[in-house]
Nucleic acid binder design. Sequence first.
DNA 1: ACATTCCCAAGCAAAATAGTCAAGAATATC
DNA 2: GATATTCTTGACTATTTTGCTTGGGAATGT
Lengths: 167, 167
Amino acid sequence: MKLTTKGRYAVTAMLDLSLHYGEGPITLADIAQRQGISLSYLEQLFSRLRKKSLVASVRGPGGGYSLGKSAEEIFVGEVISAVDENIDTTRCNGAHNCQNNERCLTHDLWSDLSNQIYSYLNKISLQDLMDRKAVREVADRQDHADHDELSGLDISMADGSNDLAGA
Amino acid sequence: MKLTTKGRYAVTAMLDLSLHYGEGPITLADIAQRQGISLSYLEQLFSRLRKKSLVASVRGPGGGYSLGKSAEEIFVGEVISAVDENIDTTRCNGAHNCQNNERCLTHDLWSDLSNQIYSYLNKISLQDLMDRKAVREVADRQDHADHDELSGLDISMADGSNDLAGA
DNA sequence: ACATTCCCAAGCAAAATAGTCAAGAATATC
DNA sequence: GATATTCTTGACTATTTTGCTTGGGAATGT
């Protein structure tokens, strides 16, 4: 299974986009600042999101990105798939050649797990996330932190730890 | 999320151990051959499994490993945790300092997902896996392949593809 | 004694991840 | 039409993780 920072960043960025819907196109620079993600890294991710029509773009001054469909229609699983290629937990990626061209002992276990995760993530839409109280609180905090950063403070790191899988 | 070959190998090896329960201690060399896993890699994995008391070991000729508890009492989630350290999908590993020392926008999403996966994997015991028809079929195939290999054929690779994650 | 097996630590190559850098194309605004 | 802004693309790089090897040792049955 592949669930790494890449997928987390993508979902976070898409959620940021949803939360600022209605303010016109949002620039990647804005998202980068609010969410603490590298701008050029975001560019790579959005390139993939655009290919899957999850976002639409407008170039030039005043341009930026907006959601490709409504927040109710975009599911977390889609977003992760778009940037991470697959969320399969089997070694053979669904083929059955994990061991000497035949299925390995635990093939079905990983296969079932993948389905489980996939169906879980595909039930959660960006709208669902926006409706969560905790998400709105963090979003508020981030919108205010903006001002602090403009006044010169708190331009900082966001990192530290480990990983899943990643994942 | 961290669900890689390491965790898959560990579960596979533990399942192999369960399936050959009653034959006395099983050597890692046997498991390595049946499951197509490198012996020294298995040693590393079993070192961790032993620290968590998931397996018990007997040294010397005729020695090997056996399950540390009954197959009903060992759950897939435990095995993966033992070798992979954690199956947390959050960046901060459960702390809430994902962004500038505060929780990031999607913290709860990954946290919920981790719980979901964890509880799923902790419901499946090695015994459950053994009861599956597909597992028994593969196990039979592997026990027969043993003979082929003794007669000189089919000492071979087992590899190829991609991964999860991480996850 | 000796072969077998577990045990342990260090090291290493390949892959993946996370990120940078540089050049370019579209498009508003002046 | 010059300029600044923003997306777009590709190549390149540093770091980390993975999967595996090597080489030693310590028990223990025969």
